[in-house]
Lab assay of single mutants.
Amino acid sequence: MSIQHFRVALIPFFAAFCLPVFAHPETLVKVKDAEDQLGARVGYIELDLNSGKILESFRPEERFPMMSTFKVLLCGAVLSRVDAGQEQLGRRIHYSQNDLVEYSPVTEKHLTDGMTVRELCSAAITMSDNTAANLLLTTIGGPKELTAFLHNMGDHVTRLDRWEPELNEAIPNDERDTTMPAAMATTLRKLLTGELLTLASRQQLIDWMEADKVAGPLLRSALPAGWFIADKSGAGERGSRGIIAALGPDGKPSRIVVIYTTGSQATMDERNRQIAEIGASLIKHW
């Protein structure tokens, strides 16, 4: 067993022997301040990774656009098919120029040779490549099948209805392509620590998230040296922004954090800054 596999296998073990965790309302004060600064709703939840206990939450059962955070769930569904012998990570998928959609920095470079399922998941999570996500959605049967996968996990809230990039439209009061912070946090925890996926697939999923290259201005910008984070960000229309993450000190994750916002007129930089400040408060009061 590799060191990384050992780390993920012992996530519940280490967490069980940690000192009790206590909620700190100071972080919620910052979440509410972010709402004021952005002029928009902000949803927040913080779960203990081992027990699933909610440590703090704000608007945990209000719907927010998922945006690209759905790509972690998508690759979880792909990995479940791999575990069941219905898919192979090494299978190569070929596609054409007509398949390319807006923001496809990886797939646009491989029109000639195609990409493997493993490479597509890596591109979808680490670079948020939209064509990679659409190609992977095709392998599982489309958005409705991802929703069905989530329902089978016990998540009857999260739903995907459309493809990239239309799913980022974020129309107010439109339930399409949305989740709730509580539902997303619980589902992410199941994917990373539950028995739904094999140990190898859980490790692969967290490795992809740990290698995320496009979430630097968010929670990662607030992390002290030595902290662990595996995350996936999302951005959408109407001032929408979000991030889902597993993080913790001492090089291992111990909490799940989900943050979503929508309806702001603020710039992307300002949305990023507010999420980073929430992260800084979380870490300060850990």
Rank of each mutant, 00 (worst) to 15 (best):
S2I: 15
S2G: 07
I3M: 08
Q4V: 08
Q4K: 12
H5W: 05
F6K: 13
A9Q: 08
L10Q: 06
L10I: 11
L10S: 10
L10G: 08
L10T: 14
I11C: 14
I11P: 05
P12N: 12
F14G: 07
A15R: 02
L19A: 15
V21H: 05
V21R: 06
F22S: 12
A23N: 06
A23T: 04
H24S: 14
V29I: 14
V29R: 09
V31K: 01
K32Q: 15
D33H: 15
D33F: 03
A34N: 03
E35F: 02
D36Y: 13
Q37I: 12
Q37P: 04
L38D: 06
G39S: 13
A40I: 04
A40F: 04
R41I: 09
G43V: 00
G43I: 00
E46A: 10
E46F: 09
D48L: 04
L49N: 05
L49I: 13
L49E: 03
L49Q: 05
N50K: 13
N50I: 11
S51I: 04
G52Q: 06
G52K: 06
K53M: 13
I54N: 06
I54G: 04
I54H: 11
I54K: 07
L55A: 06
L55F: 10
L55R: 09
L55E: 08
E56P: 01
F58G: 05
R59A: 06
E62S: 08
E62K: 06
E62N: 08
R63N: 06
R63E: 06
F64M: 07
F64W: 03
F64C: 02
P65M: 02
P65W: 01
M66P: 01
M67A: 15
S68I: 00
S68Q: 00
S68Y: 00
F70L: 05
F70S: 07
K71P: 00
V72L: 05
L73N: 05
L74T: 06
C75K: 00
C75E: 01
G76H: 02
V78E: 03
V78K: 02
S80H: 14
V82I: 11
V82H: 09
Q86I: 14
Q88F: 13
Q88P: 05
Q88G: 10
Q88V: 11
L89R: 03
G90C: 09
R91I: 04
R91S: 07
R92D: 06
I93C: 06
I93N: 03
H94F: 14
S96Q: 12
S96F: 11
S96K: 11
Q97Y: 15
Q97C: 08
N98T: 15
L100S: 04
V101E: 09
V101W: 06
E102G: 09
E102C: 07
Y103R: 04
Y103I: 04
S104Y: 03
S104G: 06
S104D: 02
E108W: 08
E108S: 11
K109L: 13
K109R: 14
H110T: 06
L111F: 09
D113A: 12
D113V: 09
D113R: 11
G114L: 04
M115R: 05
T116V: 06
V117D: 00
R118A: 15
R118P: 04
R118K: 11
R118M: 10
E119L: 03
L120A: 06
C121R: 00
S122Q: 14
T126E: 12
T126Y: 04
M127A: 08
M127S: 09
S128L: 00
S128C: 00
S128G: 03
D129H: 00
N130W: 00
N130P: 01
N130T: 03
N130M: 01
A132G: 05
A133G: 12
L137E: 04
L137R: 01
L137G: 04
T138E: 15
T139W: 06
T139N: 10
T139H: 09
T139I: 13
G141W: 03
G142Y: 02
P143I: 05
E145A: 14
T147Y: 04
A148E: 14
F149C: 07
F149I: 10
F149L: 08
L150T: 09
L150E: 02
L150H: 04
L150C: 12
H151T: 11
H151N: 13
H151E: 12
M153T: 12
M153S: 14
D155N: 06
D155P: 01
H156S: 11
T158D: 01
R159M: 07
L160N: 07
L160M: 12
D161T: 06
D161R: 03
R162L: 05
R162S: 09
W163T: 10
W163G: 09
W163S: 10
P165S: 07
P165K: 07
E166M: 14
L167C: 11
L167S: 06
N168Y: 03
I171K: 14
I171D: 13
P172E: 13
P172G: 10
P172M: 12
N173K: 13
N173S: 13
N173T: 12
D174K: 03
D174Y: 03
E175P: 15
R176Q: 13
D177W: 01
D177K: 01
M180Y: 14
P181D: 00
A182T: 12
A182E: 10
A183R: 09
A183I: 10
A183P: 07
M184F: 09
T186D: 14
T186V: 14
T186K: 13
T187M: 08
T187F: 06
L188A: 07
L188H: 04
R189Y: 15
K190L: 10
K190E: 15
K190N: 14
L191T: 06
L191W: 05
T193A: 15
G194C: 11
G194I: 05
E195D: 13
E195K: 11
L199N: 15
A200R: 13
S201C: 07
Q203K: 14
Q204P: 02
Q204D: 08
L205F: 05
W208E: 03
W208F: 07
M209A: 03
E210T: 10
E210D: 09
D212K: 04
K213P: 04
K213M: 14
V214E: 05
A215N: 05
P217H: 10
P217A: 14
L218F: 04
L219I: 14
L219Y: 03
R220T: 03
S221M: 11
L223D: 02
G226Y: 07
W227Y: 07
W227P: 00
F228V: 07
I229Q: 02
D231P: 04
D231E: 04
K232Y: 00
S233R: 01
G234C: 06
G234D: 00
G234E: 01
G234A: 09
A235Y: 02
A235N: 05
A235I: 04
G236E: 02
G236D: 04
E237R: 13
R238K: 13
R238Q: 12
G239E: 01
G239L: 01
G239S: 05
G239M: 02
S240V: 02
S240H: 06
R241P: 00
I244S: 03
A245Q: 01
A246M: 15
L247R: 01
P249D: 07
D250Y: 12
D250Q: 15
G251T: 10
R255F: 02
I256H: 00
I256D: 00
I256F: 05
V257H: 01
V257R: 00
V258S: 04
I259R: 00
Y260L: 11
Y260Q: 02
T261G: 03
T262K: 09
G263F: 04
S264K: 05
Q265W: 10
Q265D: 12
A266S: 13
M268T: 08
D269R: 11
D269G: 13
E270D: 15
R273S: 10
R273L: 12
I275T: 03
I275E: 01
I275K: 00
A276G: 10
E277R: 12
E277N: 11
A280V: 14
S281L: 12
S281V: 15
S281A: 15
S281H: 13
L282R: 01
I283T: 09
I283F: 11
H285F: 15
W286D: 02
